[in-house]
Simulated assay, not measured.
Amino acid sequence: MTHDDGDAQRPPGGRRRGVGARGVAVGAFAAVLAAGLALAAVHGGSDSGGSSAENPRTDSSARPSGSPSPTSETEWNRAPESLAAVGDSITRGFDACSLLADCPSASWATGTDRSVDSLASRLLERPKAHSSNHAVSGSRMADLPQQMRRAATHDPDLVTVMTGANDACRQTTAQMTPVAEFRESFREALRTLRADQPKAQVYVASVPDLLRLWEQGRDNPTSVRVWGLGICQSMLKDPQSDRPVDDERRQEVRKRVVAYNGALREVCAADARCRYDEGAVFAFRFSAGELSSWDWFHPSRQGQQRLADLAYRQITAEEGAGSD
């Protein structure tokens, strides 16, 4: 689930995933996929590449060529020396490499896959030593404070946040997280971070446009069958239906996502060291090749690379920039 203005480059040496790769029959792994996606809702894990306590930070003069210079303490630092990522299955790289599995190496935030060219790889001199991934597949905003607590132990200069899709992706619209609860959980997450790391910067990605996901796959036989196994039914149930009740349901989900993004913007704006992407991820016009061929839901390696593009532009911009 990713989106953009379309000018980012393909992963170096990578090949766009074509529709042909998605023509593989889904019947053979339907039961496994259904069970695995259910497991993802409770699947956890942390892929820590190291912390500043274990690996002394390198001098800023050894920063990768072309990286921005550090700024004063009172300004947004466009050249952080360490990074921690929190969020959900997107940041874990779920289904980017293989069926029903996290693939942290393909994470847009902390991955080591060269085709993704992750944010950590672009910003840090030693990304493996100075980045850590505390995202949990299947998690929702209510789980973010605990992730922030773990991230804070790594003394990060920058914390990346991408979560909220699972709050809207439920079996029914009635089960979606109320906006007030979503907002308060995010506030609690920032308070948790600030208790231990008052100077850490925070980059907050907007929640992806789930309606765009439906539009991209609604007419593809493979995606329709895979979605029928139970993925994000609040949006993807009966994907080919044009009945008013189904259109209304999809619009309700989209409105909730828009409201979530408003809450992210509001809470982030109250924190001097927080930068919201101003809807850049939500506005990204992702393509079929940027979705996993396993589930037509999570980003492929190419999709992860595009997310890294968006984040890098936002974090290294002189002022907060983005599209809404």
Rank of each mutant, 00 (worst) to 15 (best):
N55S: 15
P56N: 10
P56R: 06
P56L: 08
P56F: 09
P56C: 02
R57A: 13
R57H: 11
D59H: 15
S60V: 15
S60F: 15
S61Q: 12
A62C: 13
P64E: 09
P64M: 12
S65L: 11
G66Y: 13
G66N: 13
S67T: 15
S67W: 13
S67Q: 15
P68H: 13
P68S: 08
P68C: 07
P70M: 08
P70R: 14
T71A: 13
T71S: 14
S72A: 00
E73L: 03
E73D: 12
E73H: 13
W76Y: 10
N77Y: 12
N77D: 15
R78I: 08
A79I: 04
A79S: 09
E81Y: 11
E81A: 11
L83K: 01
L83S: 07
L83Y: 12
L83I: 01
L83G: 11
A84C: 13
A85H: 14
A85V: 11
A85Q: 14
A85L: 07
V86K: 10
V86L: 06
V86Y: 10
G87V: 03
G87C: 01
D88L: 07
D88R: 01
S89P: 00
I90M: 04
G93Q: 09
G93N: 05
F94Q: 03
F94P: 05
A96Y: 07
C97M: 09
L99W: 10
L99H: 05
L100V: 02
L100P: 03
A101C: 02
A101W: 07
D102Y: 05
C103P: 01
P104L: 07
P104D: 11
A106Q: 13
S107V: 07
S107R: 08
S107N: 10
S107T: 06
S107L: 02
W108G: 04
W108I: 01
A109F: 04
A109L: 07
A109H: 08
A109G: 01
A109Q: 09
T110G: 00
T110Y: 04
T110L: 01
T112R: 12
D113K: 09
D113E: 09
S115V: 12
D117N: 14
S118P: 03
S118E: 05
L119C: 03
A120T: 02
S121T: 14
R122E: 01
L124Y: 00
L124I: 03
L124S: 00
E125K: 12
R126Y: 13
R126F: 14
R126M: 14
P127F: 03
A129P: 12
A129Q: 11
H130D: 03
H130F: 06
H130Q: 06
H130K: 00
S131W: 15
N133A: 07
H134Y: 12
A135I: 04
S137C: 05
S137Y: 06
S137G: 10
G138W: 03
S139H: 06
S139N: 04
R140D: 04
M141I: 02
M141T: 02
A142Y: 06
A142W: 04
L144S: 06
P145Y: 09
Q146P: 00
Q147P: 04
M148H: 04
R149T: 12
R149P: 09
R149M: 02
R150A: 12
R150I: 07
A151F: 11
